[in-house]
Amino acid sequence: MLTAALNIAIAAVLLAMLLSLWRLLRGPAPEDRVLALDTLYINTIALVLMLSIRFDSRLYFEAALLIAMTGFVGTIALAKYLLRGNLMD
């Protein structure tokens, strides 16, 4: 039962990632693209956690934690860049 639920859930998250990718490629404003990247990394965390359960391996957990941290820093840096036009001066 868990495997069937995981297959459905992984398909749903992949569809969500495709929708985010569509917004990333299309998004009229740069903020839309940054928000799409933010959503994309959160979707990736969900996907990695699901794959961790699917393959019964605990190694994926550290990967999910690293994606969470670097994704947050990337979002803040891109938002700062949008606001100021440069990152460090």
């Binding site: 995981l6 969500a16 929708l19």
Partner: peptide, 29 residues
């Protein structure tokens, strides 16, 4: 775990659907 996985996948999908379909940036947020 199965129920929580399906619940979580549904809401992740709803979030991305909102990002793709809502009309302007502040609603997309």
């Amino acid at each position: 775990a199965s129920v929580l996985i399906l619940f979580g996948a549904f809401f992740v999908l709803v979030g991305s659907l909102g990002l793709a379909r809502l009309p302007d940036f502040f609603t997309r947020l």
